[in-house]
Design a binder for these strands. Sequence first.
DNA 1: CTTGGCACTCTATCTCAGAGAGTGCTAAAG
DNA 2: CTTTAGCACTCTCTGAGATAGAGTGCCAAG
Lengths: 355, 355
Amino acid sequence: MTLNVRAEILLKTLIERYIADGQPVGSRTLARQAGLELSSATVRNVMADLEEMGMVRAPHTSAGRVPTELGYRVFVDTLLKIKPLNTSEVQKLEHELLSNQDPQQLIENTSQLLSEICKLTGIVMAPRREEQLAFRHIDFVSLSDRRILVILVTQNGQVHNRILQAEREYSSSELTQAANYFNETYSGSSMTDVRRALLHEIQQDSEDMQRIMKLAVSMARAAIDPDDETKAKTDDLVVSGESNLIDIPELGDMRKLRKLFDAFTTKRDLLQLLDQSMRAGGVKIFIGSESGCEALADCSLVTAPYTVDGRIVGTLGVIGPTRMAYEQVISMVDITARLLSSALSAGNRLESSGR
Amino acid sequence: MTLNVRAEILLKTLIERYIADGQPVGSRTLARQAGLELSSATVRNVMADLEEMGMVRAPHTSAGRVPTELGYRVFVDTLLKIKPLNTSEVQKLEHELLSNQDPQQLIENTSQLLSEICKLTGIVMAPRREEQLAFRHIDFVSLSDRRILVILVTQNGQVHNRILQAEREYSSSELTQAANYFNETYSGSSMTDVRRALLHEIQQDSEDMQRIMKLAVSMARAAIDPDDETKAKTDDLVVSGESNLIDIPELGDMRKLRKLFDAFTTKRDLLQLLDQSMRAGGVKIFIGSESGCEALADCSLVTAPYTVDGRIVGTLGVIGPTRMAYEQVISMVDITARLLSSALSAGNRLESSGR
DNA sequence: CTTGGCACTCTATCTCAGAGAGTGCTAAAG
DNA sequence: CTTTAGCACTCTCTGAGATAGAGTGCCAAG
């Protein structure tokens, strides 16, 4: 299944042409376009070979050829040359992402920028593995009755809040005192350490304090543990620019479109995919059924992990039709992941890393 | 333009039939369906009258009649009898909405429930006019450099947070001290009072404190003033179940669908509409072009304001095709608004109010 | 191995005719 | 004056050819 040079050039030309205008490409067009001095008949012979190898197929006898998933695969793996992004767009990106903003806002902006520039759907998975993130600040606010609002801030400035039902009412001074104690004692420690220390303290402290400790522990778990709360699960993924997919002719089928949008709402499958692509460093591409997700049948997903202080903490990417402009999208995703990494890391230094 | 009883019955029957199956209704069908002992010829005469009055129209010469916007208007204003909701659905609603949750979460759940039960798109505008809401708690957390995270909790438990750039670095004890002072002094006062008091204090306090005060003031404005921040504007509206609109045949046109989804993303027009319907108490219905919003051309919007402790603070509603099951949707929106009101009000008592 | 030529296939589009649905009008009946 | 039956008319929808166009596969010659 190795291709000779000519077949490669023709496949590449065919895919580029098909990506550009969405029409099956005939031998005549291809012969002219490819820049090789070949007749259409010769091209037809090559196409027959490519078809046998499963790289292209003909929608019907008298149509031209379109790439198959395998064809795209070969294209992105070996034929495609990354197109550097338009400089002004890079600058826009830098400007938008490297300005001061809180992490949640930053994640949302990133997703939106991805979608706007690619004219597709952008997705960003919020940082995971915050277990290892340091605790910075906690606060308890008494609401009505026994409801206590717990606000927890992690090292990167992300704010989590949740309401807990207490067993008795607490005065605000009690709560303030507890919060101050926490902040003085544990600020800067890692979440896991805080949790461990709390569990230890519970066993020897006064009864009143115990209760608050317990609250804090359960709060810490709720805010941090991704498996503990559905809220955390779905809030972890930001999807933007869904409507960009409506125009796309391949998805013109309402059923497909519906499935896709439902997947955006559910988020479960997407999160799983992104989680999966988090392990591999660098840009990763799922073409059509490769994603294993039915809703993404005619779509491709281009992802890249991003880091905080060198450690991979999340993934971002772009979803579009299988027939998408991979060259631009890949570099877009790549650069965005890097910019987001430096925006999230202390000091805003731009990291360099291979794709 | 007054209708006699027979015309009313026929119009009502026609619209109900059309809502049910989306096909133009012919005189034969209508004569049988209406329960009046009339021939199709008589019905045809009435239809000609209704057409002249602009209540119905025929897509073409030999099709039946479909309602016009005016027809729908008359229908919802005078002909429709509200259908009480399925009891089990009401219970589900009550159960979901009256359980303890923080306001933001509650708003999102409400929107989702609206969309799920109506199988349309649910929208909820987050509480406005929080100027009048009492201040409950503030907190300052120092992030890197001079960035200070300000967390502000309003009386209803809503958490706002924002990052501010300070002129110098503050130690955490300074910040804690400032926060404690704030919370002790102002907790329970109205936002406007807090702001006023702060402005006053600034003029006599020490210089260090001044700076923090200023921060707090600007924070308070940023978190509260709806015109001050774009974030506040767009975060104010929660839209759910957009994908329910994909299946709807009237919106099968990709252009229309695209416009609609873009409107959901932009939110501006929707917010304006909801704001407008906030003034009128009770359920309000915008049919087709009545909304004045191009994207909603073939849609209707059913809204109802909700209250906190008796004061109207926001609006919620449902967006669907003009041909929607108004009876169910109206009562759904009505009951949801009431349930949300009591869920947001202290003590969770169910209020009664006319529609 | 490449190329020109040719028969063949499949789609897309147009037209045409017939069936079906529903109307408007008229004239007669209540 | 209202209602009804009857009838001609209009419009859409569907399926059947017919035709043009695009592109292929294969063969035989270069």
